[in-house]
C-alpha cells in the first residue's frame, strides 16, 4: 500500500477502506502532509470527473464522505501550526434557509484543497457572520442560498459587513439554485460559484487577487 493507493482509493470512492489505508500509512511513518496531498490529488481528480460528467452529485458527495473518513484518522497528526497557516473561509447557509447540501460539498472540497473552514451551519443570522469575521479575520465568506425567498439575506449580510466596517476586509462569494453571477452582484456579492468545484477555484482566486 502506497500513497498513490490513497489517491486511487479516493478517486474510486472506497469509503469502507480509506481509513484503514490512511492508518496504515501513518503507522509506517508517512508524513501527514504527504498523506493529505495524496487525498487532495484524489479529490482534484474527482472534481475533474464531475466536471466531465463522468461523476455526478452522488459521487461528489460520496467522495466528500470518503475524505471525512480519512480525515478522522489523519487530523490528529496534522499540527495546529499547519492548520493555522491555511487560508480561512467562513461558510454558511443564509438565514431562513435550511439547506446545506451545496455548502457541505463546498466545505469538503475546500478542506481537501488546503483551506481552513469555519462552518456556521444553516439558517445563519448576519450578526453571527459579522462576529465570526471579526474574531477570525477570515478573508472570504461563502454563502449558500437555495430558496428564492431568502436571496435578499445576501444583501443583508453585505450591509451588515459594511456597517461593521469589515466589507473591505472580506470577499463575499455566493452559490445556490436561484442565483447567477448577475444576481449575485446585484445583491452585493463579489463573486458567484456555479458549483462546489467552481466555488473552490473562485475562492482561491479571490484570496490571491
Amino acid at each position: 500500500m502506497s500513497l498513490s493507493d490513497i489517491t486511487r482509493m479516493t478517486i474510486e470512492l472506497d469509503i469502507d477502506n480509506i481509513a484503514a489505508a490512511v492508518s496504515s500509512q501513518i503507522e509506517r511513518g508517512a508524513d501527514a502532509q504527504d498523506i493529505l496531498k495524496a487525498l487532495t490529488d484524489g479529490m482534484n481528480e474527482v472534481g475533474r470527473l464531475y466536471e466531465a460528467h463522468e461523476y455526478f452529485l452522488a459521487e461528489l458527495v460520496l467522495a466528500g464522505e470518503t475524505m471525512k473518513e480519512a480525515f478522522e484518522v489523519l487530523k490528529p497528526h496534522l499540527s495546529s501550526a499547519e492548520a493555522s497557516q491555511k487560508n480561512q473561509v467562513i461558510a454558511a447557509t443564509v438565514r431562513g434557509d435550511n439547506h446545506d447540501i451545496g455548502k457541505n460539498i463546498l466545505i469538503t472540497m475546500l478542506i481537501s484543497g488546503g483551506f481552513d473552514v469555519i462552518d456556521l451551519g444553516m439558517d445563519c443570522p448576519k450578526e453571527k457572520i459579522v462576529e465570526t469575521v471579526k474574531e477570525s479575520g477570515a478573508k472570504v465568506v461563502a454563502l449558500s442560498c437555495l430558496l428564492t425567498m431568502t436571496i435578499n439575506e445576501i444583501s443583508e449580510v453585505d450591509r451588515a459587513l459594511r456597517e461593521a466596517s469589515l466589507r473591505d476586509e472580506v470577499k463575499l462569494i455566493v452559490g445556490g439554485a436561484p442565483l447567477s453571477m448577475d444576481l449575485a452582484k446585484k445583491l452585493g456579492a463579489d463573486d458567484f460559484g456555479a458549483d462546489a468545484i467552481d466555488g473552490v477555484r473562485r475562492i482561491r482566486a479571490l484570496l490571491e487577487g
Binding site: 455526478f56 452529485l57 445556490g176 439554485a177 456555479a194 458549483d195
Partner: peptide
Amino acid sequence: FKNGLFMSPRN
C-alpha cells in the same frame, strides 16, 4: 438540480 443530475444516467 441546478448543475445536473443527482446520480448517473446509468443509475
